[in-house]
Design a protein around this nucleic acid. Structure first.
Lengths: 199, 199
DNA sequence: GTCTATATCCAGATAGAC
DNA sequence: GTCTATCTGGATATAGAC
């Protein structure tokens, strides 16, 4: 019987962590931080209550790990679209389609949006907030850059780029959260978002 | 020493209730239902913990009273704008200006938006949800009606009125919530929302 | 590595003094 | 009407058995 290598152990441990995180995602999204009980996460993941503490130090740890991932993935996605060989307007269209599509198709994206939202209104110190939301402005900065380029090229409406960006993301967040509260809701045509900025 | 009449007593009682509700508003908005402790509400209102239960039956009672008010006021506001002697497009503009203005000027509106949002993702039975959100679709129905009229008159873009409505409200909700999490944030020009639907 | 049992704390709600 | 004291349940986190 060959003992597992350290590497294999680390992999198994990672898988377990992923399992717990994925179980925690929905629960945190729906109930918020405080209302989520470790017991609920454990039940969702079919493991015992105590085992959760074998993989994470605390409830906060799990929550902020999810927040961090959400922000990271959002940033990556925007930068990915930005790197595509498309005109600025097409990049906006691609972004709108991609995000609304992922919200439409399952609840996972919506859960991430909701978790970030929960985190953003949590009462934590300014320092802590800065740490948690480190890099959280990458999506907005990237979109702003795209819009500014589009204005130069005459594809995008003149006006406050920062304002357009915040409305764009606010709308997406709002839709995601709505979808979570009312799953029957149909996502609107992404083109509506595009027309908001299109000349 | 003249004893207070029943009427005066009722008025005082109402004032006290209002006092508690207003103290509860921010706390519920920021922390959500579960994380809000009766103690916090009492502290915010400078009254004792036990006294809260003299005016309300339970924590839920306070919360759902606030949700109900938020929905009621939102419906009233939209119907008020709709009754104004304005073209459909102007009604949309007035709505956007009014709501963004009230979010800009203080936190109260944002708190109401956030509370509705908390309520919408709460895990309650379908029945209960229907009861809590009774009349909650009045704003959306009213705006949809306005947009449809605007399309007939050629002021509003052709396309899915339901989609435009949901993006419009999603954007506003998203902005309100953002403002709550990051108070320094500037509200965008309402015109951005108007241009989303304007032909 | 996984579970059960439990220590410790704190919250919602009530009772009863003033 | 308002407060303080208390009952009771339940949640986080830990300890220790297997």
């Amino acid at each position: 019987m060959s003992p597992r290598t350290e590497e294999q152990n680390a992999l198994l441990k990672d898988e377990r962590r992923e399992h717990i995180l994925s179980a925690a995602l929905r629960v945190f999204a729906m109930r918020g931080f405080a209302a989520t009980k470790i017991k609920d996460i454990a039940a969702k993941g079919n493991i015992s209550h105590g085992l959760v503490y074998h993989y994470f130090q605390s409830k906060e740890d799990i929550f902020f790990e999810l927040v961090s991932r959400a922000l990271h993935v959002a940033g990556e996605s925007l930068m990915y679209v930005d790197a595509m060989p498309l005109s600025p307007l097409e990049k906006v269209r691609e972004t709108a389609r991609f995000i609304l599509g992922s919200i439409e198709q399952g609840q996972e994206s919506s859960c991430y949006f909701m978790i970030v939202l929960h985190a953003s209104v949590m009462e934590i110190s300014e320092e802590e907030k800065n740490r948690v939301f480190k890099g959280g402005d990458v999506p907005a900065l990237t979109l702003s850059k795209i819009l500014a380029e589009g204005q130069k090229q005459g594809e995008i409406k003149e006006g406050d780029v920062y304002g357009m960006t915040s409305v764009f993301f606010a709308a997406i967040t709002g839709l995601a959260v709505n979808k979570l509260g009312f799953p029957g809701m149909k996502m609107p045509d992404p083109e509506i978002l595009v027309q908001m900025v299109m000349k």
